[in-house]
Design a protein around this nucleic acid. Structure first.
Lengths: 111, 111
DNA sequence: TTTATATTTAACCATATGGTTAAATATGGA
DNA sequence: TCCATATTTAACCATATGGTTAAATATAAA
């Protein structure tokens, strides 16, 4: 069960869901806490979380009565690959890319 | 009138529209020619093209009775920037990024 | 065991989406 | 002028989406 690009981009096409993703960047969160900043019912948030889960962007793990939501690190991969394959990534300035590579090297360097 | 991220990702969330974008990567096309490979009516394609236009991903220019569709080079920018800002771009292997940078340098080198 | 907390399920609603066919509108060519 | 070509508009349809409230479920705590 691999999410389609349709599901992925569709999941990203809603402001609430993108905000949730950014929140989860900080730390794993319980459903109630995810819902807190939004002026929206809990069931509505629950639905958004399911959409993000089906798109492979987050995972949910139930411990006790709390359902913990966490980012799925590879979730954006296919979307990124499509955009790269689309060949339009030179629209990003070269400096950001180089900085990105340095960061990556910093993170992966073992010595 | 700047397209929202919602519009952008939403426009990308349909296979037909992503295929159209890839076709336009090759060359500008008339609406009828865009429609040709699809098993779908012309009005349906016309709607897809409007969605892509409103998302800022293509432009349409009418010359005579032919409406020419062309890629908008910066169309994907905001989506890419969001994804970069999301900080998950180290999910892309370093080699593709380096290759990308080389390509970019080749394209921009004047000497 | 009773009550409170965390979350989902069900049923519903309004609007959006992605398609259709038929008709309208330009524009180009004979 | 008359016909063909290119495309859009209009009206419609089924299903999807994003929200609601009320009820159900499961677990924790008193």
């Amino acid at each position: 069960m691999h999410a389609t690009l349709d599901e992925l981009f569709s999941a990203l096409s809603d402001t609430t869901r993108r905000k949730i993703l950014v929140m989860l960047l900080e730390d794993d969160m319980a459903v109630t806490d995810v819902a807190d900043p939004f002026d929206m019912s809990l069931p509505a948030i629950s639905k958004h979380l399911n959409i993000l889960t089906n798109a492979g962007l987050i995972t949910q793990e139930k411990r006790g009565r709390v359902n913990w939501c966490k980012l799925e690190p590879d979730g954006l991969r296919d979307a990124s690959v499509w955009m790269l394959g689309f060949g339009q990534f030179d629209i990003l300035d070269i400096e950001s890319l180089e900085k990105l590579i340095e960061t990556h090297i910093d993170l992966t360097q073992t010595t």
